[in-house]
């Protein structure tokens, strides 16, 4: 029994540590929702066995709401309000819930090497995010499947998918949260319980009140330490840019995709 448990613990330890020689670092700035989601998919689908893992850091301009792959735009998003406020909306290729991307750092991590076990792969990558948040002076914990909490409040949500024998995990690290705007663009079941829901979310979600640059610096250090890897700062290739523009037009700005459900 003890042997078996030791064996399992050793396997867990092995499973949760992964070393890369290098990680390709892409700092792609602030871009529209459809471009952000298209680039994530391009990086995932263009990954080859020779590609190093990729860490991409980015933001959203204009602000946008993204919904999870299994959600309905009609059910989740007040599209008229988004249009009034100049907020874009897009469906992600990953599951999870609707997010207002306004004051946050978003990361994507794309790798060919990862634990097959889904929970273990979330934990592995989220651990780098936990390390980042802790380096900023907080005590954060990973809560399966996809949340990172500080003082019992969500500060980071994460989601992943697997395609082309490659894993993509993207996630947000909240800098500040505009709860009123969030509740104006996300649909709530009824106006009657809106105030109660707003208070509930305020007690369960918070921003770190740090700058994008502060979080980006610590996230880079954390990924480097977690995977024992050097960064290769890189730009997008012409092919990646071209593929992204194509996917923006054909998928992420198309009604057929965004109103799939």
């Amino acid at each position: 029994m003890l042997d078996r448990e030791l064996d399992k613990n050793q396997k867990d330890k092995f499973r949760l540590s992964l070393k890369f020689n290098s990680i390709r670092l892409l700092e792609t700035g602030f871009n529209p929702a459809s471009w952000n989601m298209a680039l994530d998919e391009v990086l995932l689908m263009n990954c080859t066995n020779d590609s190093p893992p990729i860490l991409r850091l980015y933001g959203w301009s204009p602000p946008a709401v993204s919904i999870g792959y299994f959600q309905s735009m009609e059910e989740e998003v007040n599209v008229d309000k988004c249009n009034d406020l100049g907020i874009e909306f897009v469906r992600r290729m990953t599951g999870g819930g609707a997010v207002l991307h306004q004051s946050e750092l978003t990361y994507s991590f794309i790798t060919k090497s990862y634990p097959m076990n889904i929970l273990a792969s979330y934990e592995l990558i989220c651990d780098a995010v936990v390390m980042c948040i802790n380096k900023l002076g907080f005590r954060s914990i990973y809560v399966p499947l996809n949340d990172i909490l500080v003082d019992n409040k969500k500060v980071s949500g994460n989601a992943q998918t697997r395609r082309n024998n490659t894993l993509l995990q993207h996630g947000t690290i909240l800098l500040n949260v505009d709860f009123d705007k969030m509740f104006s663009v996300l649909n709530v079941p009824s106006e009657k319980i809106k105030d109660k829901m707003l208070e509930n979310v305020k007690s369960r979600v918070m921003g770190l009140n740090k700058t994008f640059e502060e979080v980006a610096d610590k996230l880079k250090v954390s990924f480097s330490e977690k995977f024992n890897a050097q960064f290769i700062l890189d730009d997008l290739t012409d092919k990646e840019k071209k593929d992204t523009e194509k996917l923006v037009t054909e998928k992420y700005s198309a009604h057929q995709w965004n109103w799939k459900k």
Partner: peptide, 15 residues
């Protein structure tokens, strides 16, 4: 039937 929500399912096409 249409099933929507903030859950995860791997692979996604299974839904």
């Amino acid at each position: 039937i249409r099933i929507t929500g903030d859950f995860f399912l791997y692979p996604e096409e299974a839904l």
